[in-house]
Structures are given as structure tokens and as C-alpha cells.
Amino acid sequence: MDQEQHYSYPRLYFYRRIVQAKLFIDQHYTENIELYGMADEAHYSRFHFIRKFKEVYQRTPHQYLIFVRIENAMKLLSSGMSVAAVCEAVGFEELSSFSRLFKRRVGINPSVYLSRQQALLKQKSESPLTLVPHCFAYQYGWVKKEQFQTNEQ
């Protein structure tokens, strides 16, 4: 059964425009995006555009942009990049607003998050098996049976 049987063309058009706006933010979050140019382009009023975007993604376009920037900041911090470099790389102009918004979303400061991720990176390179439940590690042949039994005792 084709989707068009359930959704009229205007409704499909609406979904496609909202999804395009979301994907635009996903791809250009590092830039200084003019969020509401997307509304003009789709021939929606700003109010209508924000309301519809929020209906689909539970966040306004601006809130979604901040969400994407923080999610990507977490990824970059996990790779070991410095807080100041990450702040710039994900499109924030001020370190103070980046730190505040990061803490609001993640619950800890970016510097604390970075040090935890650095410890995890070290663990991953020096003793990766400590990250794997040994029942799996044994079955895949990554630890010997004796090690498996020792760790289970």
C-alpha cells in the first residue's frame, strides 16, 4: 500500500519541507544559519514554520540547532579535541554560552566531559577488554577460558 494513499500531497509537501529544514541544520550547524530563511523559502510564516517544526521534532529550529551543536561537541570532545577548539568548531561564538548550554544538556561542564572521555580513550587503547562483558569476549575468542572463569569468580 503506498503512503500517498494515506497522506495528501500538501501534507507530504509539508513533511518534506520540514525534513529538509532539519537536514539543513544537520549539515550546516557549524555556520551562522539564518534559520527563518527556510520558512520564507517554504512560503510559510515564521510562526507556522516554528510551530510545525516543533510538532515534528519537539524542539523549535533554534533549540534543535543548539541540540545538534552540543551533540557534535560531545563527539569532538570524545576524540580528545580541546574545549576552546570544539566551541569554535561547532559554531558557538562565545565559550561562556557554549559551556552553559553544554552543561544544561549534558549535566557537566565540557572540561569535565573532556577529561572523562580522555580517561575512556586511554582505557580503550590500553585495556579494551575491560569495556566488553566477558561472556561476549569469551565467545568471540578475545579472552581465554581461564581468564573468563577468573573474572566471573
Binding site: Q3, R11, Y15, V19, L23
Partner: peptide
């Protein structure tokens, strides 16, 4: 997902 049409359109794209 919370909105299947939006998710479907995104994944398809």
C-alpha cells in the same frame, strides 16, 4: 519514533 512520516522521509532521503 514520534513522527513516522518525517522519519520515513528523512531516512529515505
Amino acid at each position: 519514533c514520534t513522527d513516522i512520516m518525517a522519519t520515513y522521509e528523512e531516512l529515505k532521503s
